[in-house]
């Protein structure tokens, strides 16, 4: 069976753990529980006739004093940058992380998950900035770990990259 390591990265509180829980266990909790260190989950899926095991690394979020340890991405087939649509500063953190990953690990595929789509009316990320990043090759997906909207589709689209 094909087995691929996927890392979830982003600022703290953007919903990385909630996305993994929604995708792997189909559950969601409104209570925010911060992640320290790393938690690894395994999810089996099928793309076409290809069975794939996604090894999901839920890595503690980045804050002002502790940066994501990019070395944890060693051997990763792809990564997901998670952004909280209601906090524009988390897009800046994602940009910083993406630059470091490309520099230290190499140009591996990634998607940007614009999370908390259930609060889209509160989103404040400038559309012009997103357009500019999309032009630079960023692939955005809207997700809501709370409602589940877009979550499975995002992981399936990512897995489809490996099945080809």
């Amino acid at each position: 069976m094909l087995q691929k390591k996927i890392c979830l990265l982003g600022a703290f509180g953007v919903g990385k753990t909630s996305l993994v829980r929604r995708y792997v266990s189909s559950v969601f909790s409104d209570a925010y529980l911060t992640t320290v260190g790393v938690k690894v989950e395994k999810k089996l899926m099928t793309v076409g006739t290809q069975e794939i095991a996604l090894i999901l690394w839920d890595i503690a979020g980045e804050d002002e004093v502790s940066a994501v340890r990019v070395s944890y991405l060693r051997g990763a087939a792809a990564f997901l940058l998670v952004v909280d649509g209601t906090r524009p500063e988390t897009l800046e953190t994602a940009e910083s992380i993406q630059a470091r990953v490309f520099k230290e690990v190499g140009r591996i595929p990634f998607f940007v998950l614009l999370n908390k789509a259930d609060l889209e009316h509160e989103w404040t990320i400038p559309a012009a900035r997103m357009d500019a990043l999309a032009s630079a090759g960023w692939t955005f997906r809207r997700t809501s770990a709370k409602t589940g909207d877009g979550v499975e589709a995002a992981f399936e689209d990512l897995a489809a990259l490996f099945a080809k």
């Binding site: 691929k4 390591k5 690894v40 090894i55 060693r74 051997g75 087939a77």
Partner: peptide
């Protein structure tokens, strides 16, 4: 296969 966190390491 037995210890997922070793994948890729």
């Amino acid at each position: 296969d037995q210890i997922p966190f070793l994948e890729g390491m």
